[in-house]
């Protein structure tokens, strides 16, 4: 019998969607409101840790493998570093463009109409260039990384909980 009592599971079922929605909101609006990829990822990983505590590690490992979470974490890292390298790559595509590592190549151009506006005090979500994309990459990385730490620790020490 893994997991905690029925009361804890019911309260977790009620509270879990709100935690997830708040964390994803913090990630998606990282360039407008306080927060960002790291903070929102920490909030989402807290909600997943709540599921892990309430339902037990054996039930969670039956749903999701830590190998897949490692793949997600590496995917976030690859997205982040490739967004950084695109700044150098676009020097050769646009001859008039001054690009460096981590340069914000989406801001102030009309070729790619996504996140390209300059919003000062407007709370417009279609702004800030590569910052929202980097927020998503870092958020994916932090969610998968922090949750796989807790999951592997809980699942590896499960032998003593049966005694």
């Amino acid at each position: 019998m893994s997991g905690m009592s029925r009361i804890v599971k019911t309260i977790t079922n009620v509270a879990f969607p709100f935690v997830m929605i708040y964390g994803l909101y913090v990630i998606a609006h990282g360039h407008l409101t306080p927060g960002g990829g790291f903070q929102g990822g920490a909030v989402v990983a807290s909600g997943l840790a709540m599921i892990l505590v309430a339902y037990g590690s054996i039930w969670v490992v039956g749903k999701v493998k830590e190998k897949h979470l490692s793949v997600l974490e590496s995917l976030g890292a690859i997205g982040f570093i490739s967004l950084a390298f695109f700044g150098i790559l676009l020097v050769y595509l646009y001859s008039s463009f001054e690009g460096t590592f981590f340069s914000n190549f989406l801001i102030g151009q009309d070729t790619i109409p996504i996140f390209n506006e300059i919003g000062k005090g407007l709370a417009n979500i279609n702004t800030a260039g590569i910052i929202p994309l980097m927020n998503f990459a870092v958020g994916l990385k932090v969610i998968a990384g922090l949750f796989v730490i807790v999951l592997v620790m809980a699942y590896s020490t499960r032998i003593k909980e049966g005694k």
Binding site: H31, L32, P34, G108, G119, T127, A128, G129, I131
Partner: peptide, 10 residues
């Protein structure tokens, strides 16, 4: 310069 409202994230 960065276009982000939130200066910390920028």
């Amino acid at each position: 310069e960065t276009g982000a409202d939130n200066g910390v994230t920028g």
